[in-house]
Design a protein around this nucleic acid. Structure first.
Lengths: 168, 168
DNA sequence: TATTGTTATACTCTATAACTATA
DNA sequence: TATAGTTATAGAGTATAACAATA
């Protein structure tokens, strides 16, 4: 049996847009906007994610980061290569177990993180421009509850590997 | 100058998760869930998007659909090939201009659309499970305003080509 | 000559598996 | 032998450009 419509918003639309669809559409759009913005810093979203983890928890091994990101370690190698080539992060051999590389931010990386933070703030402002301050926190509260109910922890990044078009 | 935090939610989190980030994270997650769900119907999200357009506006040419989806026509060919091979949609030559192919749903396609609709409803329910009915419409209203402010029309699908990880 | 659909080709991103070095 | 990191290879997905049929 078909589920009956529960939303009370009786607009002119023949099909009421579902929240899940809007979420997918807006999420894809936000990601595109963010990617365009950080392209000015010569960064991709995966690089920005890696950078943020290294800044937040310095000294982690590549294996640990791969586990935290849910990505295979081999993928990290290229990302780290690129960022290390720009002197933004650096690998440091662990003298006690010379197999693993601890990742750290350089001074240059610290500056880049500052720019990245400002870019993220500007991005947030651009995305939520139409909403008033109280509406933003209202939206944030709802989104956080939904995210928490799906096990999407605040600090972790399970969406690292998400892909594909949001059309449905 | 840095923008000061405006949200009043003074949780224990050291960095308040921004709405744009939550949107990207939840959108990617919702897309993944939806893809997994319609995989049971042997459909991918792009195929579902194409199917929905053909069902909503039968008789469109591939060029017209490509324009509506913001995707190159060459990409449509493979999608249409797959769906036509399963007798879900069919190409019909336009007798007045035999260059273009009008796309139509078959009877089998109509059945599939029914299943797809039920899958979408179940998906919506799964994503929003934690929210009460009034909270869902509240969330929907906020999301629609944000979407509208970015020119994401309700019926159209600009996110068709979105890609990339949502980590930031 | 212009347009619709198609095919051919190449590029990007990512994952799996083999390999090297340390332990 | 087991583990951290690396390299090699292959696959999916998509875009660009050349092509054939029709106008």
């Amino acid at each position: 049996m078909a589920t009956t419509a529960k939303t009370k918003a009786g607009d002119d639309t023949k099909f009421q847009p579902r929240n899940a669809f809007l979420l997918a559409q807006l999420g894809a759009h936000a990601t595109t906007l963010f990617a365009a913005r950080i392209a000015a810093l010569d960064l991709t979203p995966p690089e920005a994610g890696l950078l943020r983890i290294v800044a937040t928890e310095p000294g982690l091994s590549q294996q640990a980061i791969a586990g935290r990101l849910g990505t295979p370690p081999s993928r990290l190698v290229l990302l780290v290569d690129g960022l290390e080539g720009r002197r933004v992060i650096e690998r440091r051999r662990n003298p006690e177990d010379r197999r693993n590389h601890a990742l750290h931010l350089t001074a240059e990386g610290g500056r880049l993180m500052g720019q990245l933070g400002r870019a993220a703030a500007a991005h947030e402002e651009a995305v939520c421009a139409v909403l008033e301050a109280d509406e933003r926190s209202q939206l944030g509260a709802l989104l956080q509850r939904v995210a928490a109910s799906h096990g999407l922890a605040t600090g972790v990044h399970p969406g690292f590997t998400a892909r594909g078009g949001g059309a449905c």
